[in-house]
């Protein structure tokens, strides 16, 4: 464990807690893409298949349970909660996210580190996580209104993978044989997708104006 990875995990944790807090306290999911949340739930499901078979550490297990629990409860809130689901704007959340899954699955079958079910599922989760934010970013472009909590959620979510990139660089130089091209390439692509959002987020923060995305 290094400081970059801890910062990444804490930022990731903060992002899901900000989202849960928003939905739970103001009982609204306005501006949140259900499709992105469903993709994240699938990411955790396919990545943590070895949750009970491959014990790494208490920290690792607890964090996995938190990410699984929070992502599924967020999906439940938006789909099932009698008050929250009324604020879900499904006409704006139109990205065909299941179309995103097939290329990830096919890619995972052909490009992976070992052709076993667990490894292919894990690789699938890496590819899917890289593009899972797309429905949310498309929805933001459409609705254009970004309330503070949603803005913070997306910022933290983008920052976590940026910290992981620093973690991979650190581990590459401090541990021999630490080479994981698949995770690195997917992680860089994932962070780049947040690129323009970061730009407008910092602009609004610097000029102290409400965050606006260009049409």
């Amino acid at each position: 464990m290094n400081i970059f990875r801890l910062a990444g995990d804490m930022t990731h944790l903060a992002s899901v807690l900000v989202l849960l807090l928003k939905i739970h306290t103001i009982k609204s999911c306005a501006g949140i893409s259900l499709k992105t949340q469903e993709l994240f739930a699938i990411v955790f499901l396919t990545r943590y298949l070895d949750l009970f078979t491959n014990f790494i550490s208490i920290y690792n297990t607890i964090m996995k349970l938190i990410f699984l629990g929070s992502s599924f409860s967020i999906v439940w809130y938006i789909r099932r909660h009698r008050v929250v689901r009324r604020s879900y704007d499904k006409d704006q959340d139109t990205f065909r996210h299941f179309f995103l899954m097939w290329p990830c699955l096919i890619l995972a079958i052909f490009i992976n580190e070992k052709f076993t079910l667990k490894e292919v599922m894990w690789t699938f989760s890496i590819y899917l996580e890289a593009i899972a934010i797309l429905p949310q970013l498309v929805m933001l472009q459409r609705t254009r209104n970004i309330d503070n909590l949603t803005g913070q959620y997306i910022f933290l979510l983008g920052a976590y993978r940026a910290f992981y990139i620093l973690n991979w660089i650190y581990r590459y130089f401090t541990e021999e044989h630490y080479v994981h091209w698949i995770t690195w390439v997917a992680g860089v692509i994932q962070t780049l997708l947040y690129g323009d959002f970061f730009y407008y987020y910092f602009q609004s923060w610097k000029n102290n104006v409400k965050l606006e995305l260009p049409a």
């Binding site: 990731h12 790494i56 550490s57 690792n60 964090m63 996995k64 490894e119 973690n167 994981h180």
Partner: peptide, 10 residues
């Protein structure tokens, strides 16, 4: 080896 290391990350 590939299986161990990459799986200790979340």
């Amino acid at each position: 080896q590939s299986d161990g290391i990459s799986k200790d990350e979340l």
